[in-house]
Design a protein around this nucleic acid. Structure first.
Ligand code: FES
Ligand code: FES
Lengths: 145, 145
DNA sequence: ACAATAAAAGACATTTTTATCTTTTATTGT
DNA sequence: ACAATAAAAGATAAAAATGTCTTTTATTGT
């Protein structure tokens, strides 16, 4: 497994895809998303249901329904998606699994890990979901394979 | 879960503990290790068996037996333990789970992730298992709680 | 040789993650 | 109202990670 859970990877890829395809206010369906980001449809559906309940993404049922992002969602930092799915532990927890991670009670890796975690966090906090669209639309980045 | 699997966390904590307690050539038993690093004994036994087979740590059976580290093992970078347990994916794989992670086929996070991964890797490669002993012996770092 | 010791190995159980399928509910256009 | 649509919700299932227990093998000291 990578840094994030597979569930989280699907979530981020899906959110990017939704952002890219709904900038104009339209919606995109679960089937298309699943195919385009290469994820299992029904599993992804669960993930998006959860994100929808949390207000990270928006959805409407029925004809022409689907998932989309409103202005507020587009303005969220990507870290919100990560936290919603995997929790914020990755930004805070000890790399060696110790319960209390602090400078007063450091494990051998504490200080170095702090640096890595902070970098990861600030990177994911400093860019919004919407901002990725530019690169996606320019075709210089990709969401599949 | 943190950056590493729980299995990997146990492994690293155990290796540190072994290093600290066998600098003089003695051995330390699985029961003591498990208690001191707060891990399930039999599960940890499996992990250490594997590390022993791979030559990352050393072991001898029988009375006064146990686990220890020879000079070569003490000189290994910590990244060797991580790779043995979790594989090297964490240093190489795409943060969004794409199969081919490269600058020619980058996901939206590729460049930022590259930086984070490289930092993590160089940090884990640049310090040897034995080098952690100083801090451990000085009591300024800890392996439990 | 023998008994004690401690890791290695094997078998099994639980939990979490990942995945699939079916039914229900909300929405839309006619 | 009605039929079509698409997400929400529910029920299972498969796979992987994590954890426990028992038996076997190698080593040591006597
Ligand atoms: S105590 Fe381990 S990373 Fe802080
Ligand atoms: S393609 Fe995603 S991190 Fe490289």
């Amino acid at each position: 497994m990578g840094i994030f859970s597979k569930t989280c990877e699907y979530a981020v890829r899906a959110v990017f895809f939704i952002a890219q395809h709904t900038a104009d206010g339209s919606r995109v369906g679960i089937k298309e998303i699943a195919v385009k980001i290469d994820s299992p449809e029904h599993f992804l559906a669960k993930i998006l249901q959860d994100l929808s309940k949390r207000g990270i993404i928006q959805s409407v049922k029925g004809p022409n329904g689907g998932f989309y992002l409103d202005a507020q969602s587009l303005g969220r930092p990507l870290s919100d998606v990560i936290e919603a799915v995997d929790g914020g532990g990755i930004f805070r927890d000890c790399g060696l699994g110790l319960k209390e991670c602090s400078s007063k009670n450091p494990c051998p890796l504490h200080h170095d890990f702090l640096d890595v975690r902070n970098r990861l966090q600030s990177m994911l906090e400093s860019i919004t979901i919407g901002q990725f669209n530019e690169d996606l639309n320019l075709g210089i980045v990709v969401l599949k394979k």
